[in-house]
Design a binder for these strands. Structure first.
Lengths: 120, 120
DNA sequence: CAGGATCCAGTGGGATACTG
DNA sequence: CAGTATCCCACTGGATCCTG
């Protein structure tokens, strides 16, 4: 292991990290963990995402080999998205992150209240 | 476990997730994993972050109880930042994410090249 | 040394309407 | 159903200068 790491701007790992830096990949990937899903299902499951941003996110994930897009080539359109093996491996970590959020959001809220009260 | 989860917009866990959604918290927290660090050290270690953004990030992390700011109250100023217990628990997960990025960035790059070549 | 104050460009992302 | 096309704004974050 050398000094160059994710902390270095020039390190290629940085690019990989920035894939999940936005708030949506963080939610879309674990959402796909349950199995293949269609556009509309994702739109409903990932509450608050817009059609445009969902498409953008999926395209970028597909481009990086994390998500596989399967177009059944029928009318009306039927397209399914699923995680690739690479995507699954990332999902495992992201699920941990989601779980951390669920476990500790209350402590965070408490800390915020204390902090804001102290600076009032 | 009920239906409300991090996927729901109204779920408080979403707020917790968005704390790490930006690209900087993702780097600052693991950087602090090595022990207490001063502003300038962080500025050098987390390559590419500006003074302003570093301060903003640290403030927000402090506000949420993930980082402890210790001002030694001397001139010239000497301020140290370190992870709280809560911050340490998050760092463990983020380090995994960083490691995932380091392990797989090459596969991602390859996938991008293939994808871009195919759509050319 | 730590970080506040300003100014400013880029863009992430929302709303809406349209198409194959 | 699955997307594309616009319009547009708010916010992220960079550069620079200033202060205790």
């Amino acid at each position: 292991m050398n000094g160059a790491s994710v902390f270095s701007r020039s390190c290629p790992s940085r690019g990989a990290l920035e894939l999940v830096a936005g708030k949506w990949a963080l939610l879309v990937i674990p959402a796909l963990g349950g199995g293949p899903m269609r556009n509309n299902e994702l739109l409903r499951r990932v509450d608050g995402v817009s059609q445009k941003v969902l498409t953008q996110t999926l395209r970028e994930l597909e481009r990086n080999g994390l998500v596989v897009r399967q177009d059944h080539q029928v009318v009306p359109p039927h397209v399914e998205y699923r995680l690739s093996a690479l995507g699954e491996s990332l999902s495992a970590t992201l699920v941990q992150l989601d779980q951390w959020a669920e476990r500790h959001h209350d402590a965070l809220r408490q800390a915020r209240e204390d902090f804001d009260a102290a600076s009032a």
